[in-house]
Design a protein around this nucleic acid. Structure first.
Lengths: 259, 259
DNA sequence: TAGTGGTCTAGACCACTTA
DNA sequence: AAGTGGTCTAGACCACTAG
């Protein structure tokens, strides 16, 4: 939060930039402008003061104002139109974006543990062959994992990996590879890129047993494919999560308190 | 895409910035650096050349390099560390974000039509009263809509609106208000902010009939609450969409072709 | 101490919109 | 023609990291 130079004021008019703050001027300016939107001082469709006006008002250089406005534009708060001005964007449902933070919590929590239910070499069926771009019948690695917290099952993961004889697969690796590193994102993974999709599904008998859920209840299905640096698929898998244990949330715009 | 000044080259080394291009220098620089990541020339964990090196190499000012790197940082492609350098970020599953573009298509398509199945004034039950922050039993507006394309039902929407005697609700408004404007986002809406959540559900008898789906099959449930400028809830509703008609997709990192 | 990224200045020139 | 945003320069000073 921006440090206040003067006394606390209700309105944001007159708020100024503190050059001694640990926060850079452009960030303070972003907060000031956002607060004006959040408080309703500036509403959807309204035009912001021109850049030169803002320069004078807050005693900063054009580049600093530019940078603040670029950030607001990136965040979808305003739209700029050359020659016309900068305008506050109206809400738009389809610009909402959902993050996997809800899932991240599961992976980052130390109390979450991963157990391998099964790991063996199988021959690729039609679907796996298609996804992994290997010939049908090719030997691939198949892993089933359960992520849980205490006695509470959270995610049921099934994964197919291309079998690389060069790289021996050790038990410890199974637990870590492609799961831990993907969610934590600390180590540099061997994957170049990946594709994800979220679908809905109805829990079948096997899944119901493992997740201690009711057969026929709704669940999320998060499918993933990861590719190596040669752009060949390496891992294809999917997470099943009970519908009553997960929801994705998002906010459009912001309320006064948030800024 | 950046216009090429010289001949086409396989490697990105030696690629330069075209000052006559319609694309600004900093954008060209973003593309050049991204291409180096996408091609595998720069891999997760690698350090980028220092800013001053990039300045010299591409003959641009420090601020231009700064800007390009800021953009890459915003996009999650690199991480910067003061005093150490700029590094290519490894993939991280939890940073994936899903957009509602798949839904946007439904709303922006001209062939999609909205029909009102029911619109009447009811008295708020416990749940609606809670969501809309009105006393239980208060008169509210209840609307059921079906979005379809031709004979193909897409979304079943139910919505509760606070009843504002000041503002008469006319039929034409019902169709447009809070739906069209929310998805198109062209007109400035009366909403200050909104909360969205995605859950999974199993289709019940009524929904099955309306969506021509099978009872007991899986579906998405997109719930929304919108607030006015006084930060009071105005609209609470939810969209039901057959699971086999919708999936949310996302990509982590990028393949060579994409840049 | 040398090198890195982080911020910021005080302008300049351009393209565009509106009147 | 006047005003707007869009880009860019050529430095400056600072804070941080590493050898």
């Amino acid at each position: 939060m921006a440090k206040e130079t003067g006394r606390m004021s209700r309105t944001t008019i007159g708020e100024s930039i503190d050059r001694n703050s640990f926060e850079p001027a452009y960030i303070q300016l972003v907060y000031i402008l956002k607060k004006q939107v959040a408080s309703g001082e500036l509403r959807a469709g309204d035009r912001l003061p021109s850049e030169s006006q803002i320069c004078m008002q807050y005693k900063v250089s054009p580049m600093t104002v530019r940078r603040a406005i670029n950030i607001l534009s990136d965040q979808g708060v305003v739209d700029t139109a050359q020659g016309r001005g900068t305008f506050v964007k109206p809400l738009k449902l389809s610009t909402a974006s959902f993050h996997l933070m809800e899932l991240q919590e599961i992976f980052n929590n130390d109390r979450t543990n991963v157990s391998i239910l099964e790991a063996r070499i199988i021959s690729a069926d039609q679907k796996a062959a298609l996804k992994l771009k290997v010939p049908e019948g090719e030997r691939i690695i198949y892993i089933r994992r359960l992520l849980s917290r205490g006695d509470d099952p959270l995610l049921y993961h099934r994964e197919c990996l291309v079998y690389d004889p060069e790289r021996a697969v050790v038990e410890s690796e199974l637990e870590v590879t492609s799961l831990r590193c993907l969610f934590k994102g600390e180590e540099s993974s061997d994957f170049k890129y990946g594709e994800l999709s979220i679908e809905v599904t109805v829990i079948n008998r096997e899944e119901a047993e493992i997740l201690q859920a009711q057969e026929g209840s709704a669940a999320f299905n998060l499918e993933h494919i990861f590719y190596d640096y040669s752009e060949n698929p390496v891992s294809w898998g999917w997470f099943i999560c009970r519908g009553d244990k997960l929801r994705f949330t998002s906010t459009l715009g912001f309320r006064s308190k948030e800024v």
